[in-house]
């Protein structure tokens, strides 16, 4: 019983902390980035790709998938790797340049 109580408390704390953090953050569904912003993201993405995308499996190269497929894939990979949001945005912009 005691164990359950502790884990429940932990669970609730994490959820509440998440909600608090989340409400402070900017929206995910950002508009299409400006030109400079896009350049920054692509550059960052090119640095992240060989490291982040090789961690769980061999990095899948940008040319393998169509841009719309990368939109889906990075959503999927962002979930699996809990990749920070800006890093995920950078990766998707880089992968779409191919």
């Amino acid at each position: 019983m005691r164990k359950l109580f502790i884990t429940r408390k932990l669970f609730v704390t994490i959820v509440l902390a998440g909600v608090a953090l989340g409400s402070l953050s900017r929206p995910v569904f950002a508009q299409a980035p400006s030109k400079e912003e896009k350049r920054r993201l692509i550059l960052k993405g090119s640095k992240l790709w060989p490291v982040y995308c090789n961690q769980c499996h061999n990095a899948r190269p940008p040319g393998e998938k169509a841009p719309y497929e990368w939109d889906q894939e990075i959503m999927h990979m962002r979930m699996l790797g809990n990749i920070p949001a800006d890093d995920a945005r950078a990766l998707v912009e880089y992968l779409k340049t191919r």
């Binding site: 989340g22 953050s25 959503m75 920070p84 949001a85």
Partner: peptide
Amino acid sequence: FQITLNDYMMIV
């Protein structure tokens, strides 16, 4: 379903 709530939270 994988639902993005914001930069720090996703729901599966």
